[in-house]
Computed example of a mutant assay.
Amino acid sequence: MKFNWLSEYLAETLNVTAIYDAVTRPFAELRLENLSPQAIYCRIRSTSAEALEHIVIACAVYLLVCLGLYKLTFWLSTSSTSAPSAPGAQLKKENGNGGDTNVSNNGGLRNALQNGLRLRSVHLPKAALMGRMLLVIAHPDDECMFFGPLIYSLTQRDGCQVYVLCLSNGNYEQQSQLRREELFRACKRLGIDESNVILVNATNLPDDPNVEWRPDAVASFILHTVESLDIQAIFTFDRDGVSSHPNHCAVYYAAASLCLANLLPKGCKFFTLDSINLARKYLSIFDLLCTCLMSTHWCILSWKEATVVRGAMMEHQSQMKWFRWLYIYTSRYMYINSMREINLSDVELEMQIHDN
């Protein structure tokens, strides 16, 4: 049986001639040209130069947009600190001279942009801004290398108590005592009291990437700390551990197991630091646009605020190799932290991925 009606219908609806011309025209042009090696090289070079030019323009535009957003973010953030505290102050601005009216309009513009664009230097849930926060890390210096912006932002909040639980004493190079002192000095630079730093010295949790930490052993330390300090929010690594360090990943799976077993207190929230790809990791402040578009919660530091984090990192003198100096000036984690809240369904999904 022949489907003549189908071929006739396709011939009427599709302009076969036009499609054929569009497909074969480039090849016809190539046949007309002199296909010598020199001609082919010139054609490839001109095409590559044009593509490279477009890439450079796109990168320049992206960098300029990120710089503009970075400046705009801190300009908008000043609206909350410069807002009048008393009702009479706002009334005075409204009934004052023209200059005061301009200030009021300027503040209104800031508030409108802040609400519309969600551009804030600190964008965290209310539960993480007030209360007792616990940062769980694997080694001394993790608090500066990865969580510096978060710690700085939390310690600047009134009524927010930040605790650090470090699960190893940094004895990978037999320098546990030195690294212990460096940890306390670095936390002090970040605004954390020495009494709020808990350093675990357990033989089954060595600072060694070749030793796999048992999640149940890590989970017992986390749970005991949460219950004894009445912690309201936990911050730690995600399942990729930022640098894929097995000790970092073990901390996440231990905390996730507590969430999965419903052992965490009812009011305790669980947040993880986002791991990003290598290209974004060393974009410094130029990862701002990707962070705002792809993340739910974030902390962004100005250059002056990031100086505090860099100073805290320099307290870890035993770890300041040449690549650490490169890291503290180019890494995005010295300026920006992005977090997400983990719930039970997220943990179940990630545990399935881990098992597979």
Score class of each variant (00 low, 15 high):
V211S: 13
L63Y: 13
R45K: 14
E143D: 00
A279K: 07
A86F: 13
K269E: 02
S48E: 13
R118A: 10
I328G: 08
K92Y: 05
H139A: 02
R118I: 03
I57W: 10
I19E: 15
T24P: 10
D207F: 01
Y252K: 06
V65F: 02
G159Q: 12
S318C: 04
L32V: 14
R310W: 05
F147W: 00
S168Y: 05
R239K: 10
L167E: 06
S220W: 07
C268Y: 00
V65W: 04
D240I: 08
A217Q: 01
C144H: 01
F270Q: 09
V197D: 00
A312T: 11
R157I: 09
R179E: 12
C160E: 06
S153Y: 00
I57Y: 07
K304W: 15
C160Y: 01
S275M: 09
A58Y: 03
Y252I: 06
M314L: 10
M313F: 07
I353E: 11
I300A: 08
L30Q: 02
T17I: 11
A60R: 12
D274H: 12
Q174N: 04
R185V: 15
I300Q: 08
F27V: 02
L129N: 08
V218Y: 10
A128V: 03
A18I: 11
E212T: 12
E33W: 03
P215I: 15
E227V: 09
S85M: 11
G170H: 06
C144Y: 04
L52A: 09
L64K: 02
L64N: 08
G107W: 11
V308G: 03
R185D: 05
S153Q: 04
L273V: 14
T24G: 03
L289D: 09
S243Y: 11
F271E: 03
A250I: 04
S121G: 05
S345V: 07
L283M: 14
S243P: 13
L263A: 07
L150I: 14
W75M: 01
F221S: 05
